[in-house]
Nucleic acid binder design. Sequence first.
DNA 1: GGACGGAAAGTGAACGATCACTATTCTTCC
DNA 2: GGAAGAATAGTGATCGTTCACTTTCCGTCC
Lengths: 340, 340
Amino acid sequence: MSENAVRRPTIVQVARLAQVSHQTVSRYLRHNGGLKPDTVRRVEAAIEELGYRPNLVARSMRTRRTGRLAVVLPAPALLLPTRLLSAAAAVAHEAGFLMEVVSVEGGPVERSDHAWELISSGQVEGVLSLSSLPGLSDQPRTASSAAFVVVGEYDDELRGIGELADASVVGEIIEHLAGLGHRHFMHVAGPDAWSSARARRQVYTEVIERLGLVSHGVVDGDWSAQCGYEAVRALAEDSPVTAVIAANDPMATGAVRAALDRGWGVPQRLSVSGWDDLELGRFATPSLSSVVVDREEQGRVAMERLIALVRGEPEPDAARRPLNRLVLRESTGPAPVPAP
Amino acid sequence: MSENAVRRPTIVQVARLAQVSHQTVSRYLRHNGGLKPDTVRRVEAAIEELGYRPNLVARSMRTRRTGRLAVVLPAPALLLPTRLLSAAAAVAHEAGFLMEVVSVEGGPVERSDHAWELISSGQVEGVLSLSSLPGLSDQPRTASSAAFVVVGEYDDELRGIGELADASVVGEIIEHLAGLGHRHFMHVAGPDAWSSARARRQVYTEVIERLGLVSHGVVDGDWSAQCGYEAVRALAEDSPVTAVIAANDPMATGAVRAALDRGWGVPQRLSVSGWDDLELGRFATPSLSSVVVDREEQGRVAMERLIALVRGEPEPDAARRPLNRLVLRESTGPAPVPAP
DNA sequence: GGACGGAAAGTGAACGATCACTATTCTTCC
DNA sequence: GGAAGAATAGTGATCGTTCACTTTCCGTCC
């Protein structure tokens, strides 16, 4: 280990050089005004000469504010919700916060613990989670300032924040396909760790039942194209399944390729729908029917809620336009006649 | 704003409750050992009762260590290098650091400034950058502990860290295609902000010239499929170009689709290669020839270097196996005869 | 000339941990 | 029984800022 002989200059050293008190320098730094032009000049010169930068750790300690918000993701997140994160970061930045992305290994409990640790150790002022955080409200909330927002949550207290839209779109897909003559479905789901995956699976099951259709199973996927591929490959040659509802685009892509590889036309023999409207799906052949998710809006809304929570302001619950919208492309079509 | 009436318990309160000194509690927390079983029990009970969690900000202030490392990305990063980040995070975590991802808007200068700010304000101990940070070494390095690692850098002092491999692979692609009879090429490049994009572009130009081939332009892309699509759509019907080297898979996918849309067979009329070996490209039809980039290894190596730097240890320069490897799939093939 | 008052600047105590010492207790061994 | 030395615990300073108060300066008004 190397010893750091050189120490960063402090506010006191600046003050000494500028021949003022440390408090005056502090005032300058906080832009508090009320300083004589001459004083300002001397302070600025001293800061410049010493190459001084305020120690934000020390400031945080005193003010008890860190200006940091964390986004907690399940790891390994093979598929980062990039657009959501970008939008959320922009909102955070706008409000003067720094957003950081933390991915946590392990199950829901580990994630919960980690999120709680982040908050209660004073490292961040708020946590945005993309997975459910079970048992978090059971924690001893000695710190009153804990601020959590869970995105895409469906089965906890925040039920239906934007997820009802989710539901309706899964319904839409199935209804649309049913209208085209499809009766036998399969669902390739995402991992349970993701609340959005759970929501889609649940709605799939409900709607299939409600419409009196037949589900030929729900495959536990891992968001990867490979598992979509295997799901379709595993179907019998004379399987009655004519429509695959995948919980994301990569799994849908895998399903399409598996169908093509075994000589099944898409959508002539098998219709496949994805989710997320990835651009690669948009430009693929056949292009992928998918669900446009307004990730930007989702990220914005979530971050706005979090910031309001952190600041103790009322939640901004503007009327939300639906976040999700079905887009039909080449990978879905009428059910084959006669049905296989 | 809501006043936080409740204040988090401190080490002193724990000490009081456990009837020991605050230092003893501190010892317990740092696992320093040398505590009597009975003392440990009392401390633990007190911590439990108060719901105490150490304030990491205060600890950081005293120890001057934050245990945080930042990854700085150009924003808007439409395409987060997910696998690299995951691997890097794992290494960081292993070494007891928390890795956070910060995306910075603006140009190279803004990114540089931001990176410097992160370090010099004591918020993080090191910065990993995926874009070059110009002028950073010009900064007054009053703080001796500044630790930066730039990944994929090509034109700064860290020249050729793993990027020579990059070069050789672009060369490989072109040589391979030339061997299949291709003479007329086009390159769809990524944004200059990304050092990897600059590297690929540069090597493309060099190799085309070295082999005496013909380049029909370099398109300034933005990593998006759309721009790949437009690049190929813009070609004349009788364009001599038979091979498109795209700097990533989405742009390659766009190029493929554009070709198919205008009735050009891929690879019969046009060969297209991508970069990154995205799984969607692997499962697309035609599947995409691409470059397998060992992002995990890249992330690991970069993070290991950073951590070594932060700790003042010598850099671990184990013999590196090449990070990049060309994978030929369905989207590349022999040049059409007769050439158009 | 003195009282008043606002602007500008200073003083010392937090914030909540750890560090560097010092003090106490407990063994052990002669 | 007592001294040496290890094991255990305590004391006060310190990290670099901001907060709450106090002080000084300076012009104005009666």
